[in-house]
Nucleic acid binder design. Structure first.
Lengths: 196, 196
DNA sequence: CCTACCGATCGGTAGG
DNA sequence: CCTACCGATCGGTAGG
C-alpha cells in the first residue's frame, strides 16, 4: 500500500529524496531527522526504510546527482569551439540555471557534502577538484590568448565560483528581480572583471 | 584549580570559545559535542559549565563578535570622505584581513548562524541586513556619481560579498599564494567588474 | 575540577 | 505500511 505517490517520471525513492533535499536545505543535514522527513511525507519513520537504505544514502544520492550534472556540462563544454570568455559565460549561465531548477539539491551539495561517508566524500571532492581544474585551464588559455587579464587563474576561478555560490541568497529577492536581469548582470560584472 | 590556562589578554572563557570556534569550523556546530570540546581542552565535559553557560551561548558569542567587528568597520567607513569605489576597496581588503585573522570565527558565523537561538538569530540577521543596506547605499552613490556601472546595486553587493565569502576556501592554497597577491588580485577583479 | 547520571532524541531493526 | 523497541549519543545537572 503506497502512501507516498510515485509519478510518471519519479519513483517513490525519487519523491522521498526530493523531500529530503528540501528538508536538508531548510534545517541542515545533521539537524534533520528521519522522523521529520517521515512526517512531511505522511508516514512513520520506519516505513521510509522500505524505499531507501539509510539517511546518508539519500545525501549521497543528492550530492552525486549535482556533481554529475555539473561535470557533464563541463565535459560537453570542453568539446565546443569557443573563446575562453564565451566558455566562462556559458559556465556562469549554467550555474544560474541549475540553481533555479534544482535549488534544494545544489544548496545541499554545497553545504552538507562534508557529512558524506568516507568513500563518497573522496569521490565528491575529486569531482569538484576536476571541475575546478578544467575551469582553471580555460582561464589559462584565455590569458595566453590575451582574452583575459593576467590575474592568477586559481583566484579567478575561486572568485567566480564563490560569487555564483551566492546565488543561493537570491531566492528571497526573486519577487523583486527578474531572473534574466539577474543572470545578465552577474555575467556582465564577472566577465568585465576578468577581461583584458 | 584551573587546567585551562587564561592568558594576559584572554579569560578562561575566551580560551574555551576559541577552541569551540575551531571545533565548530571543522565539524560544524551540530556535529560538535561538548565532550569533543572538553577533550580538546583536556578536561571532562561537565567542567566546561563552570566557565560557559551553554553550547549555544558560545555560538552566540562567536557570531556576535564577528557581526560587531564588521559592523564597526562599516560605521567608521561611513564617516570617511572617500569615493564609492575607494570605499568598496576598503571593504574588500577588510574582509580579507578578517578572514586571515579570525578564520574560525568568521567561518562559523557564515555557516552556523542558523543554529542561533530565536532572539540572537533575529539580532544577527538584522545586523547583516544593515551591513548589506549600507553597502547598497555606497554602490547607489557610486552609480549616481558615474563611478560605477549601472548594474542593479543589490546584485553588485551580493556578488561581491559572495565572492569574499569564498575566501574560506583559500586556506588550502596558502602555501602557493602570497596573501598580498591574493588580496590585490581579488580587488582588481571585483573593482574592474563594477567600474564604469 | 571530577564522577555519576538524567531525560530527550537520534538512526535503524524486528516482526507482522 | 505499522507498532514496539534498541543501543548510542546528546546537552546539561547534582553533588561533592
Amino acid at each position: 500500500m503506497s502512501k507516498i505517490k510515485a509519478t510518471k517520471n519519479n519513483s517513490t525513492t525519487d519523491v522521498i529524496c526530493k523531500s529530503a533535499a528540501q528538508l536538508f536545505r531548510t534545517n541542515g543535514f545533521k539537524n534533520s531527522s528521519m522522523r521529520m522527513l517521515a512526517q512531511s511525507l505522511g508516514v512513520e519513520a520506519p516505513s521510509l526504510y522500505n524505499h531507501i537504505g539509510s539517511k546518508s544514502e539519500m545525501l549521497q544520492h543528492i550530492c552525486t546527482k549535482v556533481a554529475n550534472d555539473f561535470g557533464a556540462h563541463m565535459v560537453s563544454l570542453e568539446e565546443e569551439e569557443l573563446t575562453a570568455v564565451a566558455k566562462i559565460e556559458k559556465i556562469i549561465r549554467f550555474h544560474v540555471k541549475m540553481m533555479l531548477k534544482h535549488f534544494d539539491e545544489v544548496y545541499v551539495a554545497n553545504h552538507d557534502w562534508r557529512y558524506l561517508d568516507a568513500a563518497d566524500l573522496t569521490a565528491f571532492l575529486q569531482q569538484r577538484k576536476a571541475y575546478e581544474t578544467a575551469m582553471v585551464q580555460i582561464v589559462k588559455n584565455g590569458i595566453h590568448n590575451k582574452e583575459i587579464a593576467n590575474i592568477h587563474p586559481q583566484i579567478v576561478v575561486l572568485t567566480i565560483l564563490s560569487a555564483l555560490r551566492g546565488l543561493e541568497f537570491w531566492e528571497k529577492y526573486k519577487q523583486h528581480l527578474h531572473t534574466k536581469t539577474l543572470e545578465n548582470n552577474i555575467v556582465q560584472l564577472l566577465l568585465k572583471g576578468i577581461k583584458l
